[in-house]
């Protein structure tokens, strides 16, 4: 593979998101500029200028017209994807760590960090998607409290009935969106959970943790199906929509990185086979820990964003399909 290297960010990447068709790639980093790229050529399409702090998270609407970003400047902003114009701004009392739009685009969530004496909780807002986008409700209609440390990831179930959140306290919690109650909770990781991703059909999800384990869960039973033990803290996970594969990535924490770690292969994106429970292959390239990973929506490639400020966009060679079928 000859990956495309997207060097638009000056600071470590925080999140990657493909739009549903897979032709646009949205990236956020600890600089103030969320960026959108053409996924086929890696060409930079535009930047969303306005944030004054690190941008932690983004989500794109199903029709790729609006983008939601959350930043350490304590705001979340709504953007027009095509022009880069800011449409609306929500303010919280600490940095916005995770944002997301529910399927259907009627609801959205913002999760804030446990900082400045604030509790880390999920704020649910109604979105007015019919008319004027610039008039949104500034107050949440529900606040989901319970996590004892910063929430690092929130995903919506595909019917928007409930949502799952993971946190640095090591728990996965399931929330009922109607009532705002925590309906289930599971703790399997010993350290902070750093990422959560649903499988394409939402029947399983994968979590990755700083303790070096990745766990595949049954969504409804909230029970572990399989666990993978790796030799490094994990920052990012994703599940392939095409193959029974998962990709995980991470590396030593930025403050502890030594010059030998790169050679030791700790910064590689590692692919796991969900059925055999084996590590199948790895792809190297980053000079620092991997912070975010995402398969393309068709599963024919993946993107990785690193602490080194690069996004590497891979399109799988024919070899991937051939050897995967031989396994």
């Amino acid at each position: 593979m000859r990956p495309l290297l997207l060097k638009g960010h000056e600071r470590p990447l925080t999140q990657l998101k493909f739009n549903p068709e897979g032709d646009l790639l949205f990236t956020t980093a600890k600089d103030t500029r969320p960026t959108v790229w053409w996924a086929s050529t890696g060409e930079r399409l535009g930047t969303y200028d306005g944030h004054t702090g690190a941008v932690w998270s983004c989500d794109v609407f199903w029709d790729s017209t609006r983008l939601l970003t959350g930043s350490a400047d304590n705001t979340a902003r709504l953007w027009d994807v095509q022009t880069g114009r800011e449409l609306f701004r929500w303010s919280l009392r600490s940095s916005v760590r995770s944002v997301g739009v529910a399927p259907g685009c009627r609801l959205m969530h913002l999760a804030n960090s446990k900082l400045l004496g604030q509790e880390s909780c999920i704020h649910l807002f109604r979105l007015k998607s019919d008319g004027n986008w610039q008039e949104q409700e500034t107050e949440p209609f529900l606040v989901l409290r319970g996590h004892t440390a910063t929430i690092t990831g929130v995903v919506w179930y595909n019917t928007a009935e409930y949502m799952l959140s993971v946190s640095e306290d090591g728990t996965v919690r399931k929330w009922d969106v109607e009532t705002g109650k925590e309906v289930d909770r599971a703790k399997r990781h010993k350290k902070a959970i750093t990422d959560i991703k649903f499988s394409k059909d939402h029947q399983m999800f994968l979590t990755g943790s700083a303790d070096g384990t990745a766990v595949l869960w049954d969504t409804h039973a909230m029970q572990e199906i399989r666990s993978f033990v790796l030799d490094r803290p994990l920052n990012a996970v994703d599940l392939s929509p095409l193959m029974p594969h998962a990709v995980v990535g991470g590396g030593q924490e930025a403050s502890q990185v030594t010059t030998t770690a790169g050679k030791a292969g700790k910064f590689a994106a590692t692919f796991l086979h969900l059925i055999y429970g084996e590590e199948i292959f790895s792809v190297k390239g980053h000079f620092g820990p991997i912070n975010c990973l995402s398969f393309t929506p068709d599963g024919r490639g993946f993107a990785s964003g690193g602490e080194d400020g690069y996004v590497r966009l891979h399109h799988f060679d024919e070899e991937y399909y051939r050897r995967s079928s031989e396994i």
Binding site: P3, K7, T41, R44, D49, Q82, A268, F281, S282, V283
Partner: peptide, 26 residues
């Protein structure tokens, strides 16, 4: 059309890796 920083940039922000990055099979 391009917007934001992308509309005015001159340098190539996107390059393709020079060498082949192999899939390292376990």
């Amino acid at each position: 059309r391009k917007f934001g920083v992308a509309a005015t940039e001159n340098a190539n922000t996107t390059t393709q890796a020079n060498e082949d990055i192999p899939i390292e099979w376990n």
